[in-house]
């Protein structure tokens, strides 16, 4: 995973996560709405968080053994 796609994917995911959890994308969820009966804003934060962890898990676990 030293060479090839692994580190590049991780860097891209880092940038994506940084952008998602900061201005102005964060403000997208700040609405007076319900998501599955839960307030949208906290629910969206936790959902995004979970999705990023999922992506991270997929990337690091998919990368082959270190040479």
């Amino acid at each position: 995973m030293d060479h090839g796609l692994g580190p590049q994917r991780l860097r891209a995911l880092f940038c994506a996560a940084l952008a998602l959890f900061n201005f102005p994308l964060l403000a997208l969820w700040d609405r007076d709405a319900l998501f599955l009966g839960l307030p949208l804003f906290p629910a969206a934060l936790f959902l995004l968080w979970a999705l990023i962890i999922l992506a991270l898990a997929v990337i690091v676990e998919a990368a082959g053994e270190e040479p």
Binding site: P7, L10, L13, F14, A17, L18, F21
Partner: peptide, 16 residues
């Protein structure tokens, strides 16, 4: 939350 989002960001780069 930011106190726990920061570690997630750090762990994305942890492998490097």
């Amino acid at each position: 939350l930011p106190i726990y989002l920061g570690p997630m960001l750090a762990m994305i780069l942890a492998w490097m």
